[in-house]
């Protein structure tokens, strides 16, 4: 194996990991954009999506199972918002963030009791465990292309939604100035519910496409949320496109760090980079230091 194809193999490996981080980071970003809240239960939406899809897959065809899982988790997201946030007297950001942390723990426990502790996974969308696509001497699982494709489609749709539809623009308005948005007749509570639903749906979709690669179990959410969070911060909060770049960047850096350093230092490299970023450019690569995309937390 030549040096070039080895380089490419590391790159593909990084893209595989990065696309997983990216797809989680997008969900983070969406709720943040609408409410200014960092939803630490985002990883749990990913887990629920995977779990429900695997369960349904036993008696439904794969695409239907995935679609049903996305709908169920989206409704769950809306329901959680209505139950835990709507009636909240003081909508301070800090309160809401702490509630999301609590929710993440509760959802994990519920999942443990609803299902069990076992690891499960969806079948590969195309090909199988052993199939791979060769690109210039390097190989990659076809499922990685599914993940990348999903990320691309989601980003484009989300961008269009936030830019060009009334609902999307209302959502952005809530983010940049909730009071002004309320005065212009936007129902902020409904917008928040919508953003939770959408973000839960995205998380569930992510949970389905990554399931064949990472496998799904009740505890998978937290580590994913941490990496997705890092990706969102690195890219700059408030911009879904930036999350994708942030995610891919972390993945690729991790992969190349393995080529030089022992694999044990994988996380160290990723988080050292994140810390450096927070010192030098706290608003992330593509966030602007002032303005709508950054809010005080």
């Amino acid at each position: 194996m030549g040096d070039d194809s080895l380089f490419l193999q590391y790159l593909l490996s990084g893209i595989t990991k990065g696309s997983i981080y990216a797809v989680v980071a997008i969900g983070f970003n969406l709720i943040y954009s609408a409410t200014g809240v960092l939803n630490f239960a985002q990883g749990e939406f990913v887990m629920l999506g995977g779990m429900i899809a695997v369960t349904l897959c036993a008696f439904l065809p794969l695409p239907v199972a995935v679609a049903a899982a996305v709908v169920i988790v989206a409704l769950t997201g809306c329901l959680l918002e209505i139950l835990f946030f709507r009636k909240l007297r003081h909508h301070t950001i800090m309160h809401m963030i702490i509630i999301t942390i609590g929710l993440s723990i509760v959802i994990q426990e519920v999942a443990l009791h609803l299902w069990d502790e076992k690891v499960r996974s969806l079948p590969y969308f195309s090909g199988s465990e052993v199939s791979s696509i060769r690109i210039f001497g390097a190989s990659v699982s076809p499922q990685v292309l599914w993940v990348l494709g999903t990320v691309a489609v989601v980003v484009v749709l989300l961008h269009a939604f936030l830019r060009y539809t009334l609902q999307g623009r209302a959502m952005r308005a809530c983010s940049s100035n909730p009071d002004a948005a309320m005065l212009s007749g936007i129902n902020i509570s409904n917008m928040r519910t919508l953003s939770f639903g959408l973000s839960a749906a995205l998380g569930a979709l992510a949970g389905c496409v990554i399931s064949p690669i990472t496998m799904t179990h009740y505890e998978m959410g937290a580590p994913l949320a941490i990496k997705g969070f890092a990706a969102a911060i690195l890219g700059g909060l408030g911009n879904p496109m930036a999350s994708v770049v942030g995610g891919l960047l972390i993945g690729v850096i991790e992969a190349f760090s393995v080529s030089k350093l022992p694999a044990a230092y994988n996380d160290v490299t990723a988080f050292a980079l994140l810390l450096l970023m927070l010192f030098v450019r706290p608003h992330g690569l593509f966030g602007s230091p002032s303005g709508e995309s950054v809010r005080e937390v």
């Binding site: 490996s13 990991k17 690669i213 580590p223 992969a255 393995v258 080529s259 996380d267």
Partner: peptide
């Protein structure tokens, strides 16, 4: 000889190193 995180979700990078 390489060690990986026990919660690893993808190990293609470590295996690439071995392949190389």
């Amino acid at each position: 000889s390489e060690a990986y995180d026990k919660q690893s979700t993808d190990l293609t990078d470590v295996l690439t190193k071995i392949k190389g």
